[in-house]
């Protein structure tokens, strides 16, 4: 634990992920990199020097007891802390080899979508308008494009058959699980490259949860996904890599299989075997 400030982003026996300690601009396989990422709320450090690298078209899960900084980490990737009073972000974040301050926040967030813990459809909008919201609010006015986007993304998230007859009814009339899939459809409608998911199933029933897990596995073809979950089984089912956070620090980041069967750190082992947390 003493050397945690220099923990490399992944300590994996297998090949392709290693850390040179420097940012490699020619690297095309990496979707996201953070270097010494820390976040402070007023004077309190919430996460401390996090170094992580996520490969393209992979699912990375982040686990850890509540209050360990999982969500704080996730929300710093698309600069969502912008709105939080007293929040400050330190270090470097690279999204597809571009430093996040190279572009403006709005363009960054188009590339890095986010799905939240509680389904949050826009309450004044219909189902249709919710899916098309990202396009509409970004100034696109093309009815046929909207129609196409709505149908494609609702089909993709498995909602189309359930809602195709009532696209104009308010989004909040849907069930919780449907609302969350609607929010996912809304997120992918703006064609992000990376999707951040903040405990997307924690407010849902088991059936809805398994539908969303299925979606996430399918999503790998098109997107890179970083998912925060408090459910270790979920991480085991859907992710390629898993990061274990504890008290604001990254304890271990390994292939999911390895992290759950043969973790490098004792702390990880205690956590995944249920000794604490």
């Amino acid at each position: 634990m003493e050397n945690d400030t220099i923990i490399t982003d992944t300590i994996d026996d297998s090949e392709d992920i290693h850390d040179s300690g420097k940012h490699d601009t020619a690297d095309t396989k990496t979707a996201l990199r953070t270097i010494n990422l820390s976040v402070k709320f007023f004077d309190k450090l919430a996460i401390k020097n996090i170094n992580i690298r996520v490969k393209k078209n992979n699912v990375a899960a982040i686990i850890g007891p509540s209050g360990c900084g999982k969500s704080t980490f996730l929300r710093s990737i698309n600069l969502m802390h912008d709105l939080t009073p007293g929040a400050k972000v330190y270090g470097d974040i690279y999204v597809h080899n571009e430093h996040i301050t190279d572009n403006n926040v709005v363009d960054l967030r188009k590339k890095v979508g986010m799905v939240f813990q509680k389904p949050n459809p826009f309450p004044t909008m219909s189902i249709y308008d919710n899916v098309a919201a990202g396009l509409k609010l970004n100034g696109i006015r093309n009815k046929s494009l909207f129609d196409e986007t709505v149908e494609k993304n609702l089909t993709y998230t498995g909602l189309w058959d359930e809602v195709k007859d009532r696209l104009k009814s308010p989004a909040i009339s849907l069930s919780g699980g449907q609302q969350q899939r609607l929010c996912i459809a809304r997120t992918i409608a703006v064609k992000p490259e990376i999707i951040l998911m903040d405990e997307p199933t924690s407010a849902l029933d088991p059936v809805s949860t398994s539908k969303i897990e299925e979606l996430i596995i399918n999503f790998k073809k098109h997107y890179t996904i970083i998912i925060v979950t408090h459910n270790m089984q979920q991480a085991g089912r859907i992710s390629d890599y898993t990061a274990f956070f504890y008290l604001g620090k990254l304890v271990e980041y390994s292939r999911t299989r390895r992290l759950f069967t043969n973790p490098r750190e004792k702390l990880t082992e205690e956590y995944v075997t249920g000794k604490f947390g």
Binding site: D107, K110, M114, F116, F122, A133, L137, T187, V190
Partner: peptide
């Protein structure tokens, strides 16, 4: 959370305020 949903779609802050928060 409603504002965050809009911002996360890459909608600018002022449009989020006017078209999402104010409308709601």
């Amino acid at each position: 959370s409603i504002r965050e949903a809009s911002l996360a779609l890459g909608v600018s802050r002022w449009k989020t305020v006017l078209r999402i928060a104010l409308t709601t």
